[in-house]
Design a protein around this nucleic acid. Structure first.
Lengths: 351, 351
DNA sequence: AAGACTTATACTCAACATGAGCATAACTGA
DNA sequence: TCAGTTATGCTCATGTTGAGTATAAGTCTT
């Protein structure tokens, strides 16, 4: 490795989320990335563009994959990580993000194909941003894509997804059975049951990352094959679940969903995704879209209204298709009143 | 800056937590660190030991400060971040950590005095580890120190801490008033009220990090003065709250407390801090120590027993000082039964 | 213009969870 | 034996949650 190669590069990755037409969508950039070839596995110089610069079309071939907006931290220029992230997003998409939250930092060497091409060690910090769906700058090749395309088993709004019982559960069962020792099988089975709500265990909507990690380990997602040093030719597509992404970006999106599904319960973050005023059904649809579960309409209304999360504006919306609905807005005072203002949960009192 | 200086260094920091005598304690290493001098602010070569190596006594003077075990990521050797952390902890303390959880990644340039001495950019990843209090290897200068020494306003077990009303609230009020514009004052006041439960707002035990960040901004913690490029001589100690730490380590500990106080509510992590069998009062005392609030004994028992979190072993403990108590152990099956098994919270059903 | 359909909103009721307290049991030490 | 200490069982009022009924007020179709 050449001496002037930096040892470590910090990659900043943004899951830019908006909800439109009752679908949570993330902003993705289709990118052509170098394919790891079995022959030249340890040799060959790295195409530096893929690592150092953002999406400036690298010289590599192969079909494009979805990637998140991302770029490295400039140690000399960027004063904070968040400012660096905002800069990259602006540069690559033309969008100005509002609410930003750090998710997690990933640094496994073996889960990034770039590491095998002689590039520097990449440590990626994932961020989640919330906002409304805006059109990227002209000339930017960005796509707002529903996040359930990457995680079809996570959408329970119209009942338990068919893919679960029909395809995922059998594939996972095979993975459990392919273990040699029975203790190992029992351990795998328990992990599968808890993560996917099988074998009598309940479905926990927040375990999105657990489920993705398990699928990766069981080699049921495309990324797992891509990352294997001596991968056999890609197996039948039928055994890959959900749409794959470049780098470790799907893992970062899984982290984002997990985090957000947890957070809406105790912090009023949903409102970042809504216009200043909205009907209660609009609000409900957004929460349902994020949580991936249907909600009882009347109870939801009681929750947010009696809970002091929203207040009526007096205005009414006409385009409901039925009786006009009152327009509500977020009630900021709730932050002073309750410790955990979110969609569900009790309060605490001062004794 | 010399060309072979790495641009970015990843610092891995461990908050090693155990609870003994009803006090949560973290393992700290007293270290002598270079003092930032006003004269040589931008010049001077960095003492590389303070950054590159762990606590190998640097050549610098000044009195020692508390620091967490930490060390840089070795991009070539360490396969994962967590393995690197375990290695550093082992090397510096002789301890083998069990449960490990990543907290947050900090990268603000201006909040690390090392950055002003010409060293590389440090990005610190904080980790939390849970276990029992073990004695560090002989020869290691490590101290288990109660975390409430760093955050005395966080311990509400014996009622509202006196320091809050007597010293913190007035100091914060001064900070609010010292703003020029009234809109700025109103904004500061709202932040103070929400973070510290003043002005009628409730106390939210989880906002530990918010409170520390606010104190830092209001220059009411020692670290704020240390980090100022042109700091006036340190003001009277009377205006600093809690025991200070080196680097940004107190911020990392604040993150740890916030995270843990949230997590015990929905994941059975408390048991990592307890022996395999314990009495219910022992369990309660540990939860109280972490949450910083007293709990109703009978209700707590009902919660963990009916909630299926623990099961009786039939054995009894004699050293209670009163009637002997039954010994309980963690009931692993609860993971299969409830989505969020912790100290408090409802369940979800499968329809 | 009537009737079907859609969405909004109010209200009820049972099941369950939570906060607070009373009562009794079983040990220790003076 | 009595006071002090902790353990454990039980009650009761209140709050929260899940599910459903009923009615209001629009749009669209014929």
């Amino acid at each position: 490795m050449s001496p002037e190669t930096p040892q470590v590069v910090i990659g900043l990755n943004a899951v830019i989320l908006a909800v439109t037409d009752e679908e949570p969508r993330i902003l993705t950039l289709p990118r052509r990335l170098p394919v790891v070839d079995q022959q030249q596995d340890e040799g060959g110089a790295a195409p530096p563009e893929a690592v150092d610069k953002g999406p400036s079309a690298g010289a590599s071939s192969s079909r494009p994959v979805d990637a998140l907006p991302f770029g490295p931290l400039d140690a000399d220029r960027d004063r904070t990580l968040e400012l660096a992230l905002r800069g990259w997003v602006r540069e690559q998409t033309g969008l100005e993000v509002g609410y930003v939250e750090q998710l997690y930092t990933f640094g496994d060497r073996h889960r990034d194909p770039r590491q095998r091409l002689g590039g520097p060690r990449v440590v990626s910090i994932g961020y989640l941003t919330l906002g409304r769906q805006e059109t990227p700058a002209t000339g930017v090749n960005a796509v707002w894509r529903p996040w359930y395309e990457y995680f079809p088993w996570e959408d329970w709004r119209r009942g338990r997804p068919l893919i679960l019982a029909q395809r995922l559960a059998p594939a996972l069962a095979r993975w459990v059975e392919e273990s040699e020792h029975s203790s190992r099988r029992a351990e795998r089975r328990e992990r599968v049951d808890i993560a996917f709500g099988l074998g009598g265990a309940p479905w926990d909507a927040e375990r999105v990352l657990d489920r993705y990690e398990l699928l990766y380990e069981a080699q049921l997602v495309g990324e797992a094959w891509r990352d294997m040093p001596a991968a056999s030719p890609h197996p039948v597509e039928d055994r890959h679940f959900g749409r794959a992404m470049g780098f470790d970006h799907r893992r970062i999106v899984a982290t984002a969903i997990s985090r957000l599904r947890g957070k809406i319960k105790y912090r009023p973050v949903v409102f970042e995704l809504l216009p200043p005023t909205f009907t209660l059904l609009q609000l409900q649809r957004v929460v349902e879209a994020l949580a991936g579960t249907p909600l009882h309409k009347q109870n939801f209304r009681r929750l947010v209204e009696k809970g002091g999360l929203v207040e009526g504006t007096g205005e009414v919306s006409s385009g409901t298709g039925g009786r006009p609905a009152e327009l509500f807005c977020f009630r900021r005072d709730v932050l002073r009143e309750r410790p955990t203002p979110g969609v569900g949960l009790p309060a605490l009192r001062t004794p």
